[in-house]
Write a protein that binds this DNA or RNA. Structure first.
Lengths: 341, 341
DNA sequence: CGTTTTTCCGTAAACGTTTACGAGAACACA
DNA sequence: TGTGTTCTCGTAAACGTTTACGGAAAAACG
């Protein structure tokens, strides 16, 4: 079943070297023999064994995306995962690279899994998501000299790697602007408690915008919890207990927003009527919730394509004529106004 | 950076053979030297190159899950994907296997991608989902003699492979039973137009239950469309144009249900009040839609674990003492009663 | 002490590729 | 015809492992 390059060579009565050269489009092979080789490869259903090839070339021609489910978030299924991966895969396929998604168990910081991928050389580069403020994965990879790129920024790693992030700071500020324009002055912010970088960015934007509007930043209106529905449910009542409760809440995450709305409902507070609710990252859940949640939407599939491109540009083997380049980009989030504010 | 087994051997002044044996827990190596090898491996940060190992052993120690996004479904992100993969990965990790998810472009039937994985031997086995009635992927894999298992049944492949499926037939029947018990006699069924196997099973259960209740199966109440929101939106009006319109609709898919509800709303028909709506496979979207949709829920994470187990049991290298076994299971769906019926 | 067994380890081949090197043949040029 | 160049291909090494085989040393046994 497994036909090797030797079978092919024997069948054609030529050497394996010539076969390999013919298959790989090298110049020093007669046009005629090349034709015969290609044909025989097709009829014998030959395609090169990837292990052999990787071993010889020191490259696997595949890049790994580290997927990290959050604990308790299993119901949601990492909402923007698929469209992003579709874009990623499309661009990588253009360059003949495979995308393999490596799963970790929920909750661990995937250091272990990352080490395995890197040390056993299962991929030529890795892609990280859910970047943290200080990210040990980034430290590890830079220190190990292993190529990588990130979806999201971080303070780690001295910006020596490509990264594509969303402008959470601007989104946070935009959300505030919009609410202020609609007459709100008591605006709460709820974000994840982990040191996920987008949480910081969001909060920074929120703070700046409030100050710009001359509104004092009230610590009682800022809370953080687990990045899932339970977290939002648990933490939303905190900001409501303020002496001067908010009239609007900005959630940094769809799952937290849904939990928060549940908590509000139990307090007899109707999102969209008694309370303005805004979500920073839009997902289908926001759209179908009732009331439909106003949210800021990322362009996931193009982002996947672009990040793949940026990663490739940083790899010597794939970089263009001007050599490897480190590109870092920040993309906007687009407001989708719905019924909740 | 890349320390090989040769480095290790040189450092310890022993042969690479011994190092390898020590690392792999073979019996014929002195306990003392083994200790030294393990220690050196740790300090030199050695771990075996996977390509070399795969090449020699003819096995990659990884299994591939073929993820196939549906066109137009990108918004939803394959709802039950993540929890299922979490279970899968957990069980595979127990046996030292890696899980790699290989993406295809939306819409193609992933034959091409599957061939690549199989022919270049990137994985030791593959897992298929979204099985079709007649599934060319299954035909290909059985014919190629490549190990695989499926999430979902099919008529292809002569049942010579492990499969785990949900009991869509029973769910379809249960849905009808429930609606009939609540007084409905005109019950519509909307399913995907592709020959996805679960669509057939669902419809079979639906038919049987109606007949059991002495209700005639009306072709006007059965429709099929694209398996996404647009499909549900487009096709739902069809069943409503019946001379004797339905008072209840069972949707075979969450996305189609959402589209259907949109269509109903535009006709001034309120799900849960003017029309009973039931969904066969529950997702978070069903839960958060308004009204919350009554749906049948699968136990995704355990299913992932179990399918991994079944696949392993079928692989000679991992089967237990009684040798490789082909296991096929059908799991129940659990009714989650909500507000839409 | 001689023989047999056991323990431990080194040697070398093999997995399937790619590629540097060199060589024979054909060709061009004088 | 002799020399240099160009085409085309075969040879063999290398990538990093694992493992069958055999042998030396140690241990066990009579």
């Amino acid at each position: 079943m497994a036909s090797s390059i030797h079978d092919l060579a024997r069948h054609l009565n030529i050497s394996i070297g010539t076969v390999s050269r013919a298959l790989n489009g090298r110049a020093d092979v007669n046009a005629d023999t090349r034709q015969r080789v290609l044909e025989a490869a097709r009829t014998l259903n030959y395609s090169p064994n990837q292990s052999g090839r990787s071993l010889r070339q020191g490259a696997t021609r595949s890049i790994a995306f580290m997927l990290q489910p959050h604990p308790g978030d299993q119901q949601y299924g990492e909402p923007f995962f698929i469209p992003f991966l579709i874009g990623l895969q499309a661009r990588l396929a253009e360059s003949g690279l495979d995308l393999t998604v490596v799963m970790g168990a929920p909750g661990d910081y995937q250091q272990e899994r990352l080490r395995r991928v890197v040390e056993t050389r299962r991929a030529d580069a890795v892609l990280l998501a859910w970047t943290r403020r200080e990210d040990e994965r980034i430290d590890y990879l830079t220190q190990a000299g292993f190529p990588f790129a990130t979806l999201g920024r971080s303070r780690s790693g001295a910006k020596s790697y490509p990264s594509l992030d969303l402008d959470f700071e601007k989104a946070g500020a935009d959300a505030v602007d919009r609410l202020v324009a609609r007459g709100h002055r008591r605006i709460a912010a709820i974000r994840p408690s982990l040191d996920l970088n987008f949480g910081y960015l969001f909060l920074a934007g929120y703070r700046k915008a409030l100050q710009r509007h001359g509104i004092e930043v009230d610590p009682e209106l800022i809370a953080s919890g687990f990045i899932n529905e339970a977290g939002g449910y648990e933490v939303t009542p905190q900001v409501m207990r303020s002496k001067d409760p908010p009239t609007a809440i900005i959630f940094n995450n769809d799952a937290m927003a849904l939990g928060g709305c549940k908590a509000l409902a139990e307090m007899g507070i109707r999102p969209g009527q008694d309370m303005a609710v805004t979500v920073i990252v839009d997902t289908p859940l926001c759209r179908y919730f009732s009331p439909a949640l106003t949210a800021f939407r990322p362009a996931l599939e193009p982002m996947g394509q672009r990040l793949a491109e940026m990663l490739l540009a940083s790899l010597p083997a794939f970089a263009g004529p001007e050599g490897p380049r480190i590109i870092r980009e920040v993309w906007p989030l687009e407001l989708v106004a719905r019924d909740s504010d």
